[in-house]
Amino acid sequence: MKLFRYLFIGIIFGITLAKAEIVSWYRIYEMFRFQSFHMYGVIGSAVVIGIIFVQIIKRTRMKSIDGEPITINPKQFSVPRYLLGGIIFGLGWAMTGACPGPMFILVGNGVSVIVVVILSALLDTYVYGLLRKKLPH
């Protein structure tokens, strides 16, 4: 039963990203060319409201619906890891026009070849796991 609520939220998120055209390769291209405010508006407003939500959670010590305290783990500080990892992700994002969420949503949208992109991303997640100890973190 618990899993159904995650399914429900996933469906809402999938519809949102599909209807706001965030899953579109064109929108990502347009964003990186600074030719439209759309994507900046989406991410910007999500972050501003997100900050308010996180502050409410922290200041009211809000509990989850199961009664557990909500903990948001801080990320460990490092520069090379986030910068290099971020750049590599950015290169791929601009090519495929899809970050991991939209990849799944595009499957539902009938863009079947995106399965290849997902498999490719899976394979290289594995390669990262193998190389992890040799990379600067």
């Binding site: 991410i43 990320k75 890891r81 986030y82 290099l84 990892g85 971020g86 750049i87 590599i88 992700f89 950015g90 290169l91 791929g92 994002w93 090519m95 495929t96 899809a98 970050c99 991991p100 969420g101 990849m103 070849v113 995106i114 290849v116 992109v117 997902i118 498999l119 490719s120 991303a121 899976l122 394979l123 290289d124 997640t125 390669v127 990262y128 796991g129 990379l135």
Partner: peptide
């Protein structure tokens, strides 16, 4: 665009410890 791009997304997200979300 698709295979190499997917590779970079998979590697980059795990290295950076997260994607857009």
């Amino acid at each position: 665009m698709l295979v190499v791009g997917g590779f970079l997304v998979g590697f980059g997200t795990r290295y950076a410890g997260g994607c857009t979300s």
